[in-house]
Nucleic acid binder design. Sequence first.
RNA 1: GGCGACGUGGCGAAGUGGCCUAACGCGGGGGUCUGCAAAACCCUUAUUCAUCGGUUCGAAUCCGAUCGUCGCCUCCA
Length: 470
Amino acid sequence: MTTRLHDTLTGAVRPLEPLEAGHVRVYSCGPTVYGPAHVGNFRSFLFADLLVRHLRWRGLRVTWVMNLTDVDDKIINGAAAAGIAIDELAERWIAGFLEDARTLRMSHPDVLPRATEHVPAMVALVERLLAGGHAYRTDDGSIYFRIASWPAYGRLARLDPGQMRVGERVAADEYTKDDVRDFVLWKGPREGEPSWETALGAGRPGWHLECSAMSMQYLGESFDIHTGGVDLVFPHHEDEIAQSEAATGKPFVRTWLHCAHLQMGGRKMAKSEGNIARVTELLAAGASPRALRYALLAAHYRTALSFSDESLAAAAAAIERLDALVAALEAYRSDGPGDPSLAGLLGRAREAFGTALDDDLAISPALGALFDLVRDLNRRIADRTLSSPDADTALAALRDLDTVLGVLPDPADALPDALDALLEARASARASRDWAASDRLRDELAAAGILVEDTRDGQRWRRAGSPSGA
RNA sequence: GGCGACGUGGCGAAGUGGCCUAACGCGGGGGUCUGCAAAACCCUUAUUCAUCGGUUCGAAUCCGAUCGUCGCCUCCA
């Protein structure tokens, strides 16, 4: 069984065949660190995370690189507005990004290269393009890529360069270039902007350049998968292909993966639309991190996903269902002989789950398989057909699937002594059938975020997940 | 003006020629269990897949038209 993925360039769903057997190289366009990322940005990061987790779960080695764009117009403007250096602004929001990523349980990329630390590699790339006749200088010290020198331009985005409405919504460029469609590789020095002294002269790199230079530095001139949001298809990735392939003469990326937009209020979530939600704000409003992760992951990556209070609440409820099962399995005790049907049940669930994700990361049927399993396990718990070891086996199976999803609660950590004492007090109150005391202690624990439930195995507890921003 | 995606129950979302009188999650209604509660389980909640027409023995799934929504062509995940 091989994972199949939809490639934007060819429009086909094809089996993933890594250039190096057993080792997949993945590059993901990361954040521009001029402010906090919104959850729409995180949809694309988490979809890449899902991809990486799934490939690793399938036993493949994955090298995952995600860039940090720490120099561009927005950062320059933002730093100027705040009266600080661009480095300072970038540092602040890199820290913010990493914090949000941790909160949302995103796997840590193997490399998080920063653009400002890779200027020499970018300069070298531009030199190759100049030497090959694919780039030219202008009077202000800028260097542009000559689209006319690259006939394949427009293939990724399926745009006909002749039909492009370039310039219509863009004021006449302040830089002078031969053709309005040419894109900048290197921006000449300007007053008040950071500048690097390089073999190309003074200036700073254009945005598209960094991804080509850094991806090729860490993953090779040809690599397996490149991910990003659909809004990067044009011009960003189109330009990356042109400058990379024109420089190396080799195919740049084998498979292009693009996730659709996260929508809020029926429109794409975007700062310019004013309809954004940020991780820290949502958490402050009471959202649970795992519910947020689930909400961003729960629809197929190539379909628009709507985000709302309702979707977050639904995600929180789904997470609660998983939490309740985990708590039930952890508390389950039975000396019974065990359930002979369990192994088959778990095997079929894993099979269905994996098969779904192999099909271009089809998350919906994968979640369907997961929740079918949840119901079947709950039934067995209610019917008490499982043995204690069976419960452990089932829990391990759930945790195995969760290697990919990353939404189950952490293994129950110890409670503070004070709360532990309340639990014990409640247990003895129940033993003496002192319902008033028992109920009062249950309320106290609930107020402390601990949900207590009574079963024939005695009372069991779990931490309350914050049910969305209710 | 060009290119593209999509329209499935109260909401979200699978399914792309017969096993679909349509998965899964959320929500609603009824029930079981329970000291109470919670959780869980059971039953129920679309004879229907934007509309119209066509192809086919057979269509949510293919074709055409119409209406509607969203996205890209510009910084953008």
